[in-house]
Amino acid sequence: MTTTRRDAVRQALADREGFRSAQDIYADLRADGSKIGLTTVYRALQALSDAGEVDVLRTDDGEAVYRACRSEEHHHHLVCRECGRTVEVAGPAVESWADAIGAEHGFVEITHTVEVFGTCGECVARRS
């Protein structure tokens, strides 16, 4: 894959807030006149994820969604189920727990992904 296509996907993520599906990114790129294919978008997203440039999470229905990573430090996400607002959060207790549970079972080189879903205060206020 050429760097130009990866750059196009990187820019598409930077241009929008929040998490977006590969299909959404693909549709935006095509609407802007790009000839990029959906498979290339998926490959670019995987490469950007491997490089730590994008955050990836699974929605409640199992779909992978992506956004430009805002932090170079290891972090987790608090995600509003209604509007998709996302807050990056540190999780020292999660880090300790993951290491301890791994050690308890004889595992090393522990990695993990944690996303916490809820409803943000603004969405709750809109309901009233």
Rank of each mutant, 00 (worst) to 15 (best):
E104S: 13
A103N: 02
A98T: 08
R30F: 09
A98V: 15
T119W: 04
G52D: 15
A90F: 07
A14W: 00
L45P: 06
V9Q: 01
A100P: 08
C120V: 10
R127I: 11
L78F: 11
R20I: 02
S96T: 15
V94Y: 04
A93W: 10
L13D: 02
E53Q: 14
A125L: 14
A68E: 09
E104P: 06
G62L: 10
L48N: 01
A68T: 13
E115Q: 07
G84K: 03
C83K: 03
V41Q: 00
V94R: 03
R16D: 15
A12W: 00
V56T: 09
A22E: 11
Q46P: 04
A125F: 12
Y26I: 00
R10P: 02
D50F: 05
T86D: 09
R127T: 13
A27N: 11
A27Q: 12
Q11D: 10
A51Q: 06
S128R: 13
T4I: 12
V87D: 12
L29V: 08
R127D: 07
A47W: 01
I110V: 15
C120M: 05
S128E: 15
V9K: 00
R126G: 04
D28F: 05
V9M: 05
D32T: 11
I101A: 02
A68S: 14
A64M: 05
A68G: 09
R43S: 14
E17M: 07
R6F: 09
H105W: 13
V79Y: 04
V108H: 14
V89P: 06
G52L: 14
A93V: 09
C120D: 07
R81D: 06
I25C: 05
R58S: 10
A31L: 12
A27T: 10
D32I: 08
R67Y: 04
G91L: 00
R58K: 13
I101F: 05
Q46I: 03
V116R: 13
A47M: 07
A12D: 00
V9A: 04
R85S: 05
D28W: 05
A12S: 04
V108R: 15
R10N: 04
A90P: 10
S34I: 07
R58P: 03
D55A: 08
T39G: 13
G106R: 05
